[in-house]
Design a protein around this nucleic acid. Structure first.
Lengths: 232, 232
DNA sequence: CAGAGCCAAACATCACACCTTTAGTCCTTA
DNA sequence: TAAGGACTAAAGGTGTGATGTTTGGCTCTG
């Protein structure tokens, strides 16, 4: 072992730790790190330090400059859509802010995604969608909240994927995160509102009926509720 | 110079080249590369090869596995929202498909962004927005298409930024790409339609008036045109 | 005081050695 | 003969030292 005196860390931990720190504002934009300092701090070799930096660099959290070092970049240059950055933000002090932004993004995308799904869904997807809506109703009415959320996530993921747009599909994880996080941020009633259940039903039926307009309309109902919860 | 026989390439070129190739389907999902092969092909050392791999790995295009090599991943695991991946897709054989997806994303986000901007814009932004709408009308009516597109991009970027949601703001480049690309993909009339100009005006005024509902309504008009052009 | 030139810092790259994991093979054994 | 364990070699992972390259900043000069 090279250096027993320093707490060695797992390989991925370095970019994880630094990523969180930067997002958290521990290193302000413009701050300069050096490879040497990372080697010291984490007790690793240049190779590993460079690897970690490369990852952060490819997400826009910093850039390396000769003769200078590793310069932390301002938030506006971050790759905020990247899953890693999203995760870091959700683990940061401003988790709530990140959560709100994600919710807005979700709201924006899902109305369109519903319409798209209605136009493109397969027969199988249509059935699954109806099933999930029914399951949600059952679980919601019996107040099995955890299971309800699981079904909810599956519902939304399926819808996002059914449209065939890979960028929408990529947001499935974001939506899952948001749906899970709603409880944490006090935006979730202990018992899903009947209107929400109806709306999910409506979306599922419209998608099964290949009716984009209706799908969008019901999704807008759903989304309106989320939006109003946000603004409270 | 280490090896004059092999065409050496600039440092970033490797991940660029490989990224494009993977997105383009040159390396099918499941295909295996090795560091050694990259070193050979690009005439670089292991360090550089590894750096490039790290970048691709952090965008989800491949993963490396001991004893196996570098495994190309299926498109569903790609970080499709990342600017690099977007650029690669837009340069690929399926540029048209990527462009459509981006347009749908844009459509989805911009209606919500308009409403958000109306709620959050600063006084300065309100003025700039009105100015840009006026500029667009002037340039549009005199058929100065290039300048018109520039103003159009500025308009949309400003709107996306005015809402204060960093994820929406991050889509400004995407929207710019889409607006520029419309001419390439034959989705742009040589002369902007008067309705489009009116709609931009309407959006700008609604945002200046801090009227989210109106902003959304006008943006939906704009977006409806884009959508119908898509479906032709 | 301006500009040329030099210096040193920090990343970039290379070469090489050794460690670690693990797919696949082969061999043993019940 | 099939299950399971031991061995092997392939490929990435990590560490190190040397050298290349860029460039901010200092110094020296006219």
């Amino acid at each position: 072992m090279a250096n027993p005196a320093v707490a060695r860390v797992g390989r991925d931990t370095i970019s994880e730790t630094l990523g969180r720190e930067i997002v958290d504002g521990v290193h302000q934009p413009g701050a300069v790190l050096t490879l040497e300092s990372l080697q010291q701090r984490f007790g690793v070799s240049r190779t590993v330090a460079r690897d970690s930096v490369k990852v952060l660099e490819s997400h826009g959290l910093l850039y390396s400059k000769r003769r200078i070092g590793l310069v932390v970049t301002a938030a506006k240059h971050w790759d905020v859509m990247s899953p890693s950055v999203i995760a870091w933000r959700l683990a940061s002090a401003d988790a709530r802010g990140a959560f709100f932004e994600l919710t807005q993004l979700r709201i924006a995308v899902e109305t369109e995604a519903a319409a798209l799904a209605a136009a493109r869904r397969t027969e199988v997807q249509a059935h699954q969608m109806l099933d999930l809506a029914a399951t949600m109703r059952r679980l919601g009415e019996s107040e099995q909240l955890t299971e309800f959320i699981t079904a909810d996530i599956a519902f939304h993921r399926l819808m996002l994927e059914a449209g065939g747009n890979s960028m929408f599909a990529a947001l499935a994880d974001v939506v899952a995160e948001v749906l899970t996080g709603r409880t944490k941020h006090g935006l979730m009633p202990t018992r899903p509102m009947p209107e929400a259940l109806d709306a999910h039903d409506g979306v599922a039926r419209a998608i099964a009926d290949q009716d984009p307009r209706e799908a969008r309309r019901y999704m807008e109902v759903l989304v309106a509720e989320v939006r109003s919860a946000l603004e409270e």
